[in-house]
């Protein structure tokens, strides 16, 4: 029997004035990389990179399930609450987890809504991190779906959500990982995907903040899959162009969940992104 190198533990942090029990996974040693999952999913999306010995040789990859997701509980009283993620709540959660883990200026790697909040953090709390890998990340775009489809009493939101987001998976993705990726959406809690999309599809505040990002102190590299219908290469390029010094790579055979849907295809892009996270020396 051989265990994977990933270990999982629970951490309780305070968010919005109340405790949140957060599930955290990690693997590796060296420079910390805090990894954020997409809407409607969980840390499983990062397992391939966390099991990659070459990646974890010099990087400590840490991923956590946002409250309401995966093995992190929703807050007390959730049964009467409508879950709606906001920029403020998301930022507070990421910073609380980073503080709770005692991370000193980690690299922040986030995908989709995780990429969006990575750019928000780059603009508002850039000094807390040493670089940003923003995957399938953009300033803002109108949704091409109705978020209310995904939380209704007469149909299974998870199965609908999975069928919808399959539009964002590349045809080059191996079938096994396509379905493993979709499984996370199928099994997410009721209203969770909708609540994440509330943040992702309605908050335009990043657009005016992109110019504040100081890439001389904290590099920003954006990765985008050509098969991503939600954050298209055009969306990512427009976003990168608004951040002085940001770089962008288009991944021709990947979609919206690259680290999960096609691990082998994504690996070289992620390794390249890590190599770009060396900030130039800035005199204080």
């Amino acid at each position: 029997m051989t265990f994977e190198p990933i270990t999982g533990r629970y951490l309780t942090v305070e968010v919005a004035g109340a405790p949140r029990r957060i599930y955290v996974e990690e693997a590796g040693q060296g420079r910390p990389v805090l990894c954020l999952h997409t809407a409607g999913a969980d840390t499983m999306q990062w397992r391939h990179l966390m099991n990659d010995a070459e990646v974890t040789k010099h990087h400590r990859l840490i991923a956590f399930d946002m409250p309401w997701h995966g093995k992190s509980l929703p807050p007390k009283g959730f049964e009467t609450e409508e879950y709606r993620l906001t920029t403020e709540l998301y930022i507070e959660t990421v910073l609380a987890v980073a503080d709770g883990l005692g991370l000193e200026r980690p690299i922040l790697a986030g995908c989709s809504m995780g990429g969006r909040i990575a750019l928000q953090l780059a603009a508002l709390h850039g000094d807390r991190f040493s670089g940003f890998i923003a995957i399938e990340a953009s300033d803002f775009q109108q949704s091409w779906y109705d978020i209310d489809w995904f939380h209704r009493p007469d149909a299974h939101g998870g199965e609908m959500g999975a069928a919808l987001v399959s539009a964002n998976i590349s045809p080059y993705a191996p079938a096994e990982e396509r379905w493993n990726t979709l499984w996370m959406f199928m099994s997410s809690g009721p209203g969770v995907f909708r609540g994440d999309l509330w943040f992702y599809t309605r908050d335009e505040s990043l657009i005016d903040r992109l110019g504040q990002i100081d890439t001389a102190r904290t590099p920003v590299h954006i990765l985008v899959g050509a098969y991503d219908l939600t954050c298209t290469p055009e969306d990512a390029k427009r976003t990168a162009a608004a951040i002085p010094g940001a770089t962008v790579s288009v991944m021709d055979e990947l979609g919206h969940f690259p680290m999960s849907e096609h691990p082998a295809g994504f690996r070289p892009f992620f390794v390249d992104a890590l190599a770009r996270m060396q900030a130039p020396v800035v005199a204080d």
Partner: peptide
């Protein structure tokens, strides 16, 4: 096709 061009890979892609 087994590997359609981006946008042609999904019915919602065709719509977009």
């Amino acid at each position: 096709k087994a590997h359609p061009k981006p946008g042609f890979h999904d019915i919602f892609g065709l719509v977009t």
